[in-house]
C-alpha cells in the first residue's frame, strides 16, 4: 500500500494549485504512472480518492495513464516495450535509447473556478 505516500504528495500539490487559482473545487486529475515506477495505477487512484475526502479534491475524477518503457531510435522514433530490454531498435536493429519512464507525474488538473478568476494567475 505504499501508493498512499504518493497520493498524499499528489493531494498536497493539487490542493496548492486549487488555492492558487481560487478554485471552488477540483473536478478532474490526470496522472501519468510509469509501469516501472513500482506504483500501481488503480491502487493510486483509490488512495487518492480516499485522502481527498474533506479537501478541495473530494469527488474529483481521477484518470491514470499507464506508461510503458520505450525505446527511442533516431530513425524509427519511439516504440513502447514490455520491460527492461537491450537498447536496440526492434525495427532496424540500430542502437537505441531505453527510456524507463519509471516516474509518476501529475499531468493535468481541471479546476472548478468562478468566472472572475478564470483568466487570473494562469
Amino acid at each position: 500500500m505504499h501508493e498512499l505516500s504518493f497520493a498524499e504528495q499528489i493531494l498536497k500539490c493539487v490542493d496548492q494549485e486549487a488555492r492558487r487559482h481560487c478554485a471552488r473545487g477540483v473536478s478532474r486529475v490526470r496522472l501519468r504512472v510509469g509501469r516501472l515506477s513500482g506504483v500501481n495505477g488503480a491502487n493510486l487512484a483509490f488512495c487518492l480518492k480516499a485522502v481527498a475526502e474533506g479537501s478541495a479534491m473530494e469527488g474529483a475524477e481521477v484518470e491514470v495513464d499507464e506508461v510503458a518503457p520505450e525505446l527511442v531510435c533516431s530513425d524509427c522514433g519511439r516504440q513502447p516495450v514490455g520491460g527492461v530490454v537491450e537498447p536496440v531498435c526492434p525495427t532496424c536493429g540500430k542502437e537505441a535509447e531505453l527510456l524507463l519512464n519509471a516516474e509518476v507525474y501529475i499531468e493535468e488538473v481541471e479546476l472548478d473556478v468562478e468566472d472572475d478568476h478564470a483568466e487570473a494567475k494562469s
Binding site: I10, E17, V104, E108, V109, E110
Partner: peptide, 16 residues
Amino acid sequence: MSKTITLRRRVEAAGR
C-alpha cells in the same frame, strides 16, 4: 466554469 491546468509535475513518495 472549469479551467484545465497543465502541470506535468513529477511526484515523489512523501519524504523524499
